[in-house]
Design a protein around this nucleic acid. Structure first.
Lengths: 148, 148
DNA sequence: CCAAACTGTAACTAAATCGGTGGCAGTATC
DNA sequence: GATACTGCCACCGATTTAGTTACAGTTTGG
């Protein structure tokens, strides 16, 4: 595997919030859809709130809503909000300074990995929550029509 | 962090082998440069051998050599040889089938993540071991000249 | 005013994975 | 036959993950 599934949780939750519009959702409702539990959802949504993507209201009747229009939130926004480190792990230790290759590989690899990660991030930045909401609605409609 | 640092080890080792040309290297020599240990190196190089990137000879005087020209080995080759799962983790469980969003998110996310990973892999595929060897040699030469 | 329904947060568990280590059988060379 | 390698297994400690329990704080509704 690779990174945590927090990105998946974040994007899933954002899509639910985008679909529900002004109506806010509770962490329990989102956890149900994820077949997970509310605490995990609140942890992830907490990071999204820190990044300015959602906001929450406490107390009875409280819940979560998007802080921006769905078309103004990309998958990259969600990804960076919840994922800490780099995707491609670097050397566990600095290599030996006594070896010519060891002396330079760290820098060279850093440049290569950064470029590769950037390519991935740019691709994530091209899809918005609005895009995913649209696709979900399309699929729902298709299912409904096929049942007629 | 993200994935394991096996990719870094693999690329480091391949670059050393590329630089040393026909001269084979032992896992201990490579481990020295990595400030790591021979067993880890053999594990990683074993995967590279399974992928047809290097070959090894047993017994005294044995060691490791490239199985292809350095310019015919990309960082993507090294990456896929040693890294198992996807970079971006999917849902830990399948989401709820009772929720409209849950029903479709897995497919949609799979498509998005696959595209994003592919963008990263394409970028890794554009750099070869020959490229890294060249850069290491260039840097070595620069250091040597600045000392004159 | 008080019970109910939320968020927010800390502490904890079980499982997985990681880098690393030691041991040892097999193999080729000197 | 000693030496120097690969190949492979079993194990360790540290870290991270998803998930759970517990509980304090906050808001609303009856």
């Amino acid at each position: 595997m690779g990174l945590s599934s927090r990105s998946a949780v974040a994007i899933h939750a954002l899509t639910m919030l985008g679909r529900s519009g002004v109506h806010s959702l509770t962490s329990a409702e989102i956890a149900d859809s994820l077949a997970s539990n509310p605490v995990l959802v609140r942890r992830v949504l907490g990071s999204l709130r820190d990044a300015g993507l959602v906001w929450s209201t406490e107390g009875r009747g409280g819940g979560w809503s998007l802080a921006r229009a769905p078309r103004e939130i990309t998958l990259y926004d969600a990804y960076t909000a919840v994922e800490a480190g780099p995707v491609l792990a670097r050397h566990a230790h600095p290599p030996s300074d006594a070896c010519p290759v060891g002396r330079h590989m760290q820098d060279l690899l850093e440049a290569e990995f950064r470029d590769a990660e950037q390519a991935m991030e740019e691709r994530l930045g091209r899809t918005t929550i609005a895009h995913l909401v649209r696709q979900v609605l399309d699929r729902e409609r298709e299912v409904a029509e096929s049942k007629r």
